[in-house]
């Protein structure tokens, strides 16, 4: 009887813990030749918007830019400097950068890395046990501009109720709030991997 009770207790614990540690939504792939610890000066290019939400790309870019500044780990180039660079090179959001662009980013803006992003899903979903919750999926790429190479690529996907604690408490109901939380998670992950090492 005692062993049976222990067995059921362990079964219950496993069930509870497996519920808590679901599939990880943040995936970062770092290049084998990357040198993330040398990245300090960074800028954010406008995000490419693959969704039907018209202004989602610029909103996400501005929130992510704010999160980078707020992290205190990076020296972030102002959005205006990046806009003028894009204007000079006539670069649309999501445009592929060439060697010449990387050279110019390094020389004119003294950057170590540049972030390019792509929003793949933005919207609201119902049917997850709560009222409508926002959902965002984003892919970010960090390029080492000094070497002209991809440094890392991150994919992150979240629903507003991923942050639910008890009942409806903790559920994020706004896209801004959700993207801000996701930005913090992404930047924390990058810092853990060695980025933002400003000496």
């Amino acid at each position: 009887m005692k062993y049976l009770l222990r067995f059921f207790f362990l079964l219950f614990l496993t069930a509870v813990l497996s519920g808590c540690f679901g599939a990880k939504q943040l995936q970062t792939r770092i290049m084998a030749t990357a040198r993330p610890d040398s990245v300090c000066r960074i800028a954010v290019l406008p995000f490419d918007n693959w969704t039907n939400e018209e202004q989602a790309g610029v909103i996400a870019q501005r929130i992510f830019y704010g999160a980078l500044v707020n992290s205190g780990a990076f020296e972030v180039r102002s959005e205006g400097d990046v806009s003028l660079f894009r204007l000079r090179h006539r670069l649309a959001p999501g445009a592929l950068l060439g060697k010449f662009h990387f050279t110019d980013l390094q020389e004119k803006l003294q950057l170590d890395a540049i972030v390019q992003g792509r929003l793949t899903e933005v919207g609201s979903l119902s049917g997850r046990g709560a009222d409508e919750v926002p959902v965002v999926a984003v892919q970010l790429q960090v390029y080492d501009v000094r070497r002209g190479e991809l440094l890392l690529s991150t994919f992150h996907h979240r629903w507003g109720d991923d942050y639910r604690k008890v009942m409806h408490f903790g559920t994020v109901t706004t896209l801004t709030g959700l993207f801000d939380r996701m930005s913090d998670e992404i930047i924390t992950d990058w810092i853990e991997r060695g980025l933002g090492n400003c000496q």
């Binding site: 704010g66 980078l68 020296e75 959005e79 559920t171 706004t174 801004t176 709030g177």
Partner: peptide, 29 residues
């Protein structure tokens, strides 16, 4: 109704962003 805001402060000596904060809330929250 929801409201989402983001602020960035730029230091006028260096011309760089030095502070930023984002926040949002809604009736449901």
């Amino acid at each position: 109704p929801v409201l989402g805001l983001t602020f960035t402060a730029m230091d006028t000596v260096s011309g760089s962003p030095v502070w930023s904060e984002t926040g949002a809330t809604g009736i449901a929250e």
